[in-house]
């Protein structure tokens, strides 16, 4: 057993546990908090995979901004938990079964097409973070310049859309 593998297994167990916690928590606030924990473990994975910039983005954007927004909305709407519903009684067992089948299938596919010689070594402390970040920035602003700009427009549109959707009419009439 190498140390990387031990770290991976521990982190994997944590991420799966938090994901399950997110899905099965009765209280939506707990769910959100579980998800934050999950995002953080994924960010650690990114660090292990040698992608520090993505790891930081994951923590600031996902774990920070997005999850704050979620918590804010949950609390704004008072939607911590919902009243029990009798609709779709067969949905839950069917979903479990299908999810199980899906996991089995995908694991089977991955194992049957296993690439054991493709391994990942975690970068050590000597890695020049700025180096890799520079390289990535060069690529992002040269090869992927147009998608980058389009993404900025997308964010602008999303911002305008969110404002328009939630805006209160002055004369009291809801839009």
């Amino acid at each position: 057993m190498n140390s990387d593998l031990i770290v991976f297994i521990v982190l994997a167990i944590v991420s799966i546990a938090t994901a399950m916690g997110m899905v099965f928590s009765r209280n939506a606030v707990y769910s959100a908090l579980f998800l934050v924990l999950n995002f953080v473990t994924v960010a650690v994975f990114y660090l292990l995979l040698g992608a520090p910039f993505i790891a930081m983005s994951q923590i600031t954007v996902y774990g920070g901004a997005i999850m704050v927004l979620f918590l804010f909305v949950i609390m704004l709407l008072g939607a911590e938990s919902l009243a029990p519903s009798k609709a779709l009684p067969w949905q839950r067992p069917l979903a479990f079964t299908l999810a199980l089948v899906l996991v089995v299938e995908s694991v089977y596919l991955i194992v049957s097409r296993a690439q054991p010689n493709l391994g990942i070594t975690a970068p050590d402390a000597s890695l020049n973070t700025m180096d890799s970040l520079r390289q990535m920035a060069m690529e992002l602003f040269s090869k992927y310049l147009l998608p980058f700009e389009v993404t900025s427009i997308l964010l602008l549109v999303a911002m305008v859309g969110a404002i328009v959707l939630t805006k209160q009419e002055k004369n009291g009439r809801e839009s």
Binding site: L94, L98, L102, E105, Y108
Partner: peptide, 22 residues
């Protein structure tokens, strides 16, 4: 009209396609 059941059919489709691939 239940969005979740529609999503379920999507998942069913995914499972079936993967099964076919296997």
């Amino acid at each position: 009209g239940f969005v979740r059941s529609y999503a379920l059919s999507v998942l069913l489709g995914v499972v079936l396609i993967l099964g076919y691939l296997i």
